[in-house]
């Protein structure tokens, strides 16, 4: 009789232990998410990223130094002649506009986060598959007179394209993905109200579960375009021929 009692007790304890372990497992899953992986790979990437960022900064400094030297030549020359001064100012204007200078000014920052994985939105929850939303946002920004735009710190230029490549978008030939950060220099009040127009793009995206944040800044810095663009097919029409 005593034997049976102790055995039952052990069974009861085992059942309790089983329940506790499964509860614990479920809680961890809920907190961390279902498709989690140990952080070791993440750490490696973070380290690599830090190293590369340092390298990029060094190279960028080198480039800026070089360009400052070039500008010094130009400004010295412009002391001698007003025409040269005019020319170098014009050059600066076109370089800023076409994206070859880092610029600053008032503007807005838009941060787009993908909806949390959820059956309700499962169909169209990825910004990568819906990159035409980004094309539309850019159009909205341009309508309101933005002067410089960057997406995830890549300058938007006349030649910027978006192409789905697997699980990310190629923008300026470089991979970008969520979260998307769009910066635009221009009249920030106008831009915000244009984007927020009811039935507009932000409305539409929010209805699909995207989390969008629009912040106005007095001073935003937008990086320069880093590619060399050369036209292979198009040639200027010279006025002499006509």
């Amino acid at each position: 009789m005593k034997n049976i009692a102790s055995k039952t007790l052990i069974v009861a304890v085992c059942v309790l232990l089983g329940i506790i372990i499964s509860i614990q497992y479920k809680t961890v899953n809920d907190v961390v998410g279902p498709d989690s992986i140990p952080s070791q790979k993440n750490k490696e990437l973070v380290n690599e990223l830090a190293r590369l960022e340092e390298e990029k900064e060094g190279l960028m400094n080198e480039l800026t130094n070089l360009e400052n030297k070039i500008k010094k030549y130009e400004s010295e020359a412009s002391k001698e002649s007003d025409y040269i001064k005019e020319l170098s100012e014009e050059l600066e204007k076109y370089r800023m506009f076409s994206g070859y200078e880092e610029v600053e000014g008032p503007g807005v920052e838009i941060v787009i986060n993908e909806p949390e994985i959820n059956d309700e939105y499962a169909h169209s929850s990825s910004i990568v598959e819906n990159y035409d939303y980004l094309l539309d946002i850019i159009s909205y920004l341009n309508v309101t007179g933005s002067e410089a735009i960057s997406i995830n710190d890549l300058r938007y230029t006349s030649y910027s394209e978006m192409l789905i490549a697997g699980e990310h978008i190629n923008f300026n030939n470089k991979p970008i993905g969520a979260p998307i950060k769009i910066k635009a220099i221009g009249p920030s009040d106008d831009i915000e109200s244009a984007l927020r127009i009811s039935g507009g793009i932000i409305n539409l995206m929010e209805s699909y579960g995207f989390q969008i944040e629009i912040k106005k800044h007095d001073k935003l810095t937008i990086p320069r375009y880093t590619e060399i663009k050369e036209l292979k097919y198009a040639k200027p029409i010279s006025d002499d021929e006509e």
């Binding site: 961390v32 952080s39 590369l52 880093t226």
Partner: peptide
Amino acid sequence: FVSLSTIKEKQNDVDKIKKEIIDI
């Protein structure tokens, strides 16, 4: 533990910077 999307994000950043360095 980190989620898969965080890793993807970081991987994109690394690839992006590598290409930027070549450009610069």
